[in-house]
């Protein structure tokens, strides 16, 4: 009885969370320029797959494949950069002792508060004075380190038993060796988690790429397809939804592969 109730609740919740996506897909298959369908006409008799062709290949001013490539370049650079820079710092905070360590770590944590609207403007001006606006540098460099992943990795590194590096130290290993040969290999799951977080946060970042790029060749998928609206007149819902599905597909594929680390990972992030 309890089991049945649980399943009922789970299914209802699942529907509630997934129905909008199904709906999105169905609307994207309505004929181009069709008005918004009512529920009973939601399943199209002749799915208009041509909408996908139209959005992907028939938009001379909207290089969707280029947007995709930009997203890939930017996201992977940031993920790699963050893994390296943040893991180094996390090692420092978790396994080494130096003056002011806790204060500096506290500043890292505190900096989580001044993101978003607070620093966007000065970061924009900084990037401008470096001459980076509308280049990959503008999209990548501000993201290659994050206090959040430093925090996440520090938690994981702290959990590795101390005996291991003591043994290594006896063999004459230095800190960098311990970091690269012991801690990093042992923290695969945490690194994967941190990478997964970073991947989704970067891929779906909207505000910064919107601000820091101006030419369509430099736009990421998220920003590029957000402008999928005709400047005049009403929204063309089927094509709009087609663009939305196209944004979602890489995310869902990535999620499918990383989901294990992902759901595990937030646990590492939480304070035990």
């Amino acid at each position: 009885m309890k089991k049945a109730l649980s399943y009922a609740a789970l299914t209802a919740l699942g529907l509630f969370l997934v129905a909008p996506f199904v709906w999105m897909l169905l609307v994207s298959l309505q004929p181009n320029k069709a008005p918004i369908p009512t529920l009973d006409h939601l399943v199209p008799k002749h799915p208009a797959w041509s909408n996908y062709h139209l959005v992907l290949f028939e938009q001379p001013n909207l290089p969707v494949l280029r947007f995709f490539l930009n997203s890939v370049i930017v996201t992977f650079s940031i993920v790699l950069g963050q893994l390296f820079v943040s893991s180094l710092a996390a090692y420092g905070f978790a396994r080494m002792n130096f003056k002011g360590r806790n204060y500096i770590f506290f500043i890292f944590l505190g900096s989580l508060m001044f993101s978003g609207p607070v620093t966007q403007l000065p970061v924009y001006l900084l990037v401008r004075s470096l001459g980076w606006l509308d280049t990959y540098a503008a999209l990548i460099v501000p993201g290659v380190s994050s206090a959040f992943s430093v925090f996440l990795l520090r938690q994981a590194f702290s959990a590795v038993p101390n005996e291991l590096d003591e043994a290594a130290r006896m063999d004459g290993a230095g800190d960098f060796r311990i970091y690269s040969r012991i801690i990093m290999p042992l923290s695969g799951a945490a690194l994967a988690t941190s990478a997964a977080f970073c991947f989704f946060a970067t891929w779906t970042d909207f505000f910064w790429p919107l601000l820091s790029t101006s030419s369509s060749n430099m736009r990421t998928l998220e920003v590029g397809l957000s402008v999928f609206k005709n400047s005049y007149g009403n929204t063309n819902w089927p094509l709009e939804m087609t663009a939305t599905v196209l944004v979602m597909i890489p995310l869902l594929v990535a999620f499918l592969f990383s989901q294990r680390y992902f759901t595990k990972g937030i646990m590492i992030g939480s304070i035990k």
Binding site: V85, S86, A89, Y91, I107, F108, T119, P122, L126, Y179
Partner: peptide, 20 residues
């Protein structure tokens, strides 16, 4: 230890503290 946290701290100063 400072060497390990240097890149991240430099980044934090340039892209968060200085802008603020």
């Amino acid at each position: 230890g400072y060497l390990f946290i240097a890149p991240a701290t430099f980044h934090l100063v340039v892209f968060a503290i200085f802008p603020m």
